Computed example of a mutant assay.
Amino acid sequence: MTSTDEHSPSIRVLVVDDEALARRNLTLLLRNDPDIASVTECGSGQEAIEEIRRSRPDLVFLDVQMPECDGFDVLELLGADMPETVVFVTAYDTYALRAFEAGALDYLLKPFDDARFSRTLARAKEKLARYAPTQHRSISKIAVKSRNQTLFLNVSDIDWIEAASYYACIHIGEATHILRRTLQELEQDLDSRSFARIHRSIIVNLDRVRGLELQDSGEYEVVLNSSTRLRLSRRYRKCIQERLAELASGR
């Protein structure tokens, strides 16, 4: 999010929906907010992918059901270019769990009232302010609650992390710790030089990667030093190969 003075609008929003009326309703609500710098509309998933890669919006309101390329396809195809903050918008509540697993901040169920929209936008603003580039610092420890105690985990000890409903499962050796945060939120706190997504629901510590193995199916698996095997999504393959090559060369 672009840093501005407190009176200047700073949030760039993209609204993605194949229905023009739905896009218009969201756009009108957004333009009433003084913190919104711009609102762009896209009428298809493919158009949204191109626009997100071109303009890097701060906040995306993304319809789930669209022909040819739905909301989940958009995020899968974006891979590492997935926006910082995404809100799914749909008339069906059956996709809620999958939306949060995909890293969505919120899930707006149509029809929604102005109060519900305002709460969602407020949450988005809070997240964007929290992870503004000028404020971001990668963390060295993560606090997790375990029974009647709080454990402080060294981030450098983490092998891999996976999304599980509204939680993130942090794997360290044979231990698994549960944290009530989405994978996308957690990713913002991790050092991008050491951690990377290999799947929409998996982040790995690159220092723990032994190598990549091609399977008979034509897909790759990420093999960790612990011999754990994790699926490498095709959308992240090129990025991971480049990152591992950089680490191997010491760059």
Rank of each mutant, 00 (worst) to 15 (best):
203 I>C: 03
228 T>E: 13
211 G>V: 04
1 M>P: 06
175 A>F: 02
86 V>E: 00
138 S>L: 00
90 T>V: 10
220 Y>A: 05
193 R>L: 08
208 R>Q: 15
101 E>S: 08
230 L>R: 11
143 A>C: 07
200 R>V: 09
228 T>P: 02
193 R>M: 06
38 S>E: 15
43 G>D: 14
154 N>R: 15
148 N>F: 14
177 H>K: 08
236 Y>E: 02
192 S>W: 01
228 T>R: 12
175 A>D: 15
171 H>Q: 13
184 Q>D: 12
212 L>N: 07
32 N>I: 00
141 K>I: 09
195 F>R: 07
10 S>G: 06
69 C>T: 14
178 I>D: 08
242 E>W: 00
211 G>P: 06
133 P>T: 05
78 L>E: 00
227 S>W: 02
118 S>W: 04
247 L>R: 12
141 K>L: 07
191 D>P: 01
116 R>N: 12
31 R>A: 01
103 G>H: 05
12 R>E: 14
82 M>G: 07
244 L>C: 06
112 F>N: 12
132 A>H: 03
107 Y>W: 08
12 R>I: 05
115 A>E: 15
182 T>C: 05
9 P>D: 09
9 P>K: 13
171 H>C: 14
23 R>H: 01
238 K>S: 14
217 S>T: 15
45 G>F: 14
184 Q>P: 00
178 I>G: 10
80 A>D: 15
33 D>N: 14
13 V>H: 10
111 P>Y: 13
129 A>Q: 10
244 L>F: 00
220 Y>S: 02
104 A>S: 15
197 R>E: 07
83 P>M: 04
64 V>S: 04
123 R>E: 12
49 I>Y: 01
158 I>E: 09
37 A>S: 12
135 Q>Y: 03
141 K>S: 08
66 M>P: 14
67 P>Y: 02
173 G>M: 09
47 E>D: 15
43 G>P: 03
93 D>N: 15
152 F>H: 08
237 R>E: 14
243 R>I: 01
196 A>F: 01
213 E>A: 11
144 V>F: 02
95 Y>L: 11
55 S>V: 06
165 S>A: 15
26 L>W: 03
241 Q>M: 13
177 H>M: 09
116 R>F: 00
212 L>D: 04
56 R>W: 03
170 I>F: 03
168 A>D: 01
200 R>Y: 03
65 Q>W: 00
60 V>K: 04
140 S>M: 08
146 S>N: 14
217 S>K: 10
210 R>H: 09
48 A>C: 08
152 F>C: 06
185 E>G: 09
41 E>L: 10
18 D>N: 14
187 E>D: 08
147 R>A: 14
209 V>N: 00
186 L>P: 01
79 G>K: 08
16 V>E: 10
218 G>E: 11
187 E>R: 04
52 I>F: 05
38 S>V: 07
63 D>N: 08
7 H>S: 10
172 I>Y: 14
181 R>C: 07
202 I>N: 09
64 V>E: 02
116 R>H: 09
158 I>H: 06
50 E>P: 03
200 R>S: 06
131 Y>L: 02
100 F>N: 10
216 D>S: 13
234 R>K: 06
187 E>N: 08
50 E>I: 12
60 V>P: 15
194 S>D: 13
49 I>P: 13
210 R>N: 12
187 E>L: 07
111 P>A: 06
50 E>M: 11
162 E>P: 04
223 V>H: 04
100 F>D: 05
